[in-house]
Simulated assay, not measured.
Amino acid sequence: MSNRDEFPEDTKRKVALRANHQCSFHGCPQPTSGPSDESPEAVNMIGKAAHIHAAAPGPGARRYLASMSREERTHINNAIWLCATHADLIDRDEVTYTADMLRAMKSDHEAKCAERQRNALSTGEAVPDLVAIGPNIVFIGEFLGVEAEVWSFHLRNFVDGDVHTLIALAERYERTKAIERYVLVNELGDGRRLRDKPSITRETTGGYMVRCPVFPSADRIRASDLPKSWALSGSDDLVVQGGNWAITSGLEALPQQMKTCLSHQRGESPFHQDFGTRFAEYYNLLVGSPWFARYLKLEVIRQAAIPYTDLTNDQQHTPLRCVKRVYGVEVLASTPTNNWLPIRVDLDVNGVGRWRNNLSVYIPSEPIIAITL
C-alpha cells in the first residue's frame, strides 16, 4: 500500500477548475484537457494536480515538510495545477522552485483567470458557465436551445465527474432517486427535473453534445402566499410581541425564508437527508476562487427550481417556493463572521418581479454529520 498522501479526486477537479484547466506555470499557454480521437468518450488530459510540498518523504521528494499533517498535504492549498512538462520540472529542482514561489505562481495564475472572467462579463462577452446534471456531474458549457422538451448543451470540460460518470448515470437512471434527477444551468438561472436519462455524443468540431429530456417548470407560489412561520430577529432569536411569539408570512417573510432555506446544509434534516444546500462543502473547496459564486448560484437554482417531497406533510414543492429565476449570486466577504457569510442574491420572485437583497448564510465550522431517525 502506498504511503503517499495523494489528493482526493474532488480536490484535483477543483484545483483544475480554479486554474481554468490551464497550466499555472508562468508564461505557459498550454491547455491541459480536450477531446481525444480514440473514442467518442475519450479525453486527452495532460494536466495534473502537483504537490507543492511532496506527498511522501524519500529520494526525489521535493519540498517535503515533515511537520505537515496528512490533511494539510492533501488539502487544495498544497496543490498547483500544471501541465505534465512543468509538473516534472518543479519536481527536479526544489532550489529554484521553492514552496513560496509555487504558491505565488498559483495565486498569480488564479488572479489572472479571475480578471479575464470579470473583463469578459463586463464587456458582455459570452462566458461558458456551469451546468449540473444531478449531484455528481458538473461541466463547463453553453446552452444551445430547447426542442421537444429536450435541453441541449455544448460541453467543453468536466469539472465534477466525466464521460463515464454521465454514461453510468444514464445506465442506472431508473434506480436513481427522483430528487437527484435534475439539470441546472447557470446561464439560464434555471433548472428542470429530468424526464428521462441524458445522452452524450461526440461533435465533429470537437467537444460533446449533451441532451437532457426535461419536465416543464415546477409550480411556484406567489411571495404573498408564503406560509406562516415564527419570526426571527437579526440574531436569529425568536421575536416576542405582546407576550407571544411573533408570526411572519407572505412578502414580509421573504428575506427570512431565503436566509433560513439557504443556510440549511444538506444532511442536517432528520426527515429528508437530501434537503439543504452544499454551501459549506463549496466554501471549503473554492473560497477565494472566481468559481465559488458560480457554484453557489447552481445551489440557489436547485433550491429555486427542483421540487422535493416534504415528508412531514407529504407535499411536494421547491425549497424556495416562490423564486422563478436566479439572475446572480455575489459573495460579499472573503470569510464568514461568526460563521455567517454575507451574499447578495438577484432573483425573479413570483408576484414581485426582480428582487435583489443582501443576506447572510450560515457556513458551519465542522463537517455536517447526517442525522437519521
Rank of each mutant, 00 (worst) to 15 (best):
W291L: 08
S263I: 05
G207S: 05
P364R: 03
S334P: 00
M105G: 03
E281I: 01
P319W: 09
R192N: 13
A19N: 09
I52L: 07
V240F: 07
V287F: 10
F279G: 06
L359M: 13
S36I: 01
L286K: 04
Y97D: 01
D196I: 00
H109D: 07
R92F: 02
P227V: 04
L251K: 12
T337Q: 11
K259D: 07
N339Q: 15
D274G: 11
G47E: 06
A55F: 01
L262N: 08
E6W: 09
L286V: 02
L232M: 14
N358Q: 14
R70L: 02
R116D: 14
D236Y: 13
A42H: 07
D310N: 15
H109V: 03
L320N: 08
S224T: 11
T74K: 12
L332Y: 04
D314C: 01
I179V: 15
K197T: 05
I52C: 03
W230L: 13
L155V: 12
V300A: 06
R222H: 11
S33Q: 14
P290C: 09
A49N: 05
I167N: 12
A126F: 04
A305L: 00
H21T: 01
L166P: 04
K48D: 12
D108M: 05
E38W: 05
A253H: 15
S360D: 13
C113S: 09
P40V: 06
D310L: 02
L254T: 04
A66E: 15
A16T: 05
I52M: 06
L238I: 14
V138P: 04
